[in-house]
């Protein structure tokens, strides 16, 4: 009991550890796997992401020139980002916001990229060089 008294009183006199979340939003970590987006101008609709995705939440319709992801099925594992040959997929640092209905994110490509823009790459997935937490946590 004495140990806990010390602890409790320390908490009482010091500032509470609470992050007042919706009032004060802490910026996400640089490398956090938040909402998935696609930079459609770079995308070649190669369907690699759709094939590798363990939840099959990405659908690529080459005919309609659309790339769609179901953010409510996505498990945010980042495989698609890793395998994307164009590096056009990315996670934002913010988490996907809750919604009242399940909607898919459908991105449409204005025009297919020119063939020369498609770079056949074999390079390894980009691992961000320096990750600085960037701010104080507590």
């Amino acid at each position: 009991m004495p140990g806990m008294i010390k602890n409790v009183l320390k908490n009482f006199i010091s500032k509470s550890a609470t992050r007042p979340y919706p009032i004060e939003v802490r910026p996400g970590f640089k490398d956090a796997r938040g909402e998935l987006t696609n930079q459609m101008s770079k995308c070649t609709l190669c369907t690699l992401c759709a094939k590798k995705c363990p939840t099959q939440c990405i659908t690529v319709l080459r005919k309609e020139l659309t790339w769609e992801v179901d953010p409510f099925t996505c498990v945010y594992c980042g495989i698609c980002v890793d395998v994307c040959p164009q590096n056009c997929l990315s996670h934002s640092t913010e988490h996907k916001k809750p919604a009242r209905t399940k909607t898919k994110l459908i991105l449409k490509q204005e025009k297919p990229p020119a063939p020369e823009e498609i770079i056949k790459t074999d390079e390894k997935p980009v691992v961000p060089e320096k990750i600085d937490p960037g701010h104080d946590y507590h």
Partner: peptide, 18 residues
């Protein structure tokens, strides 16, 4: 619906607020 795997606590708070 609160997406995420797992949903972050912030997202859950957002969900309740929503």
């Amino acid at each position: 619906y609160v997406p995420g795997c797992p949903a972050k606590p912030e997202a859950i708070i957002d969900g309740v607020v929503e």
